[in-house]
Design a protein around this nucleic acid. Structure first.
Lengths: 117, 117
DNA sequence: TTCGTATATTCTATAAATCGAATATACGAA
DNA sequence: TTCGTATATTCGATTTATAGAATATACGAA
């Protein structure tokens, strides 16, 4: 694979490599959300949110639309949401795996079954 | 979504947020590859490769198996390869989009059709 | 024009990632 | 044990990312 393509992919991953930005993109699953609503619903500082949005814009993860005073953001391509969806599956698989291992390591103290917090 | 989950996802993305590590993971699509073979086939410095492998190990992207002198790496979960596959599709969609836009912007100089380099 | 709201940018300090060089460890063979 | 190969780790320098504070810009309303 050409190096430019790897570079491109790396930049997308990097754009997603921060909990706040993941939260933003997942919020945008619903559709367009204004910058202000993002700030409010995620409880972010305005400047900080704006910086993270700048990263997402620069790396082409989101697009935006100005309407009067406000700026509405949306995810640029549904495939990116699919990536997050797979990560969700991966997390689930990963967690299951870990629990299974724990179970095998300590048969006498089942982790999954008695898990009533 | 709980913050721990976002943190987890962010770490996976970060593990993939480097061209060299993407190259490594894509090389591992074939199956197990030794550290030495990774170094050789990607033309990396030994220490540098080892550092990137450490990142992939730490973030749970790869697993490894020691056999005598060598260490064989493999991707820990097929879902992670699926993520890369989607990125490939995204890249293609993205590229197509850009070319279409270029085309629309300069009708008199078609970009796609006359592209014989 | 002036004011107020929404958003972006710049600045500074701090933390984290990256690289190459050097060194360390693990292991099989002699 | 000593040697050689494969791999990992540590170190120091440089770059990049991040947060918060302060400031700037854009735009609609008065």
């Amino acid at each position: 694979m050409p190096d430019a393509l790897r570079q491109f992919k790396a930049e997308i991953f990097q754009a997603l490599a921060h909990p706040t930005r993941i939260a933003i993109v997942e919020l945008l699953r619903e559709g367009e959300v204004s910058a202000g609503a993002i700030v409010e619903r995620l409880g972010l500082e305005q400047a900080n949110a704006s910086q993270h949005l700048a990263v997402l814009r620069t790396k082409q993860v989101v697009s935006y639309r100005k309407e009067g005073n406000q700026v509405f953001y949306s995810v640029r391509h549904p495939l990116l949401l699919e990536v997050l969806e797979i990560m969700r599956q991966y997390f689930h698989a990963h967690l299951t795996e870990s629990l299974t291992m724990l179970n095998e390591m300590s048969q006498q103290v089942p982790v999954v079954e008695g898990d009533k917090r």
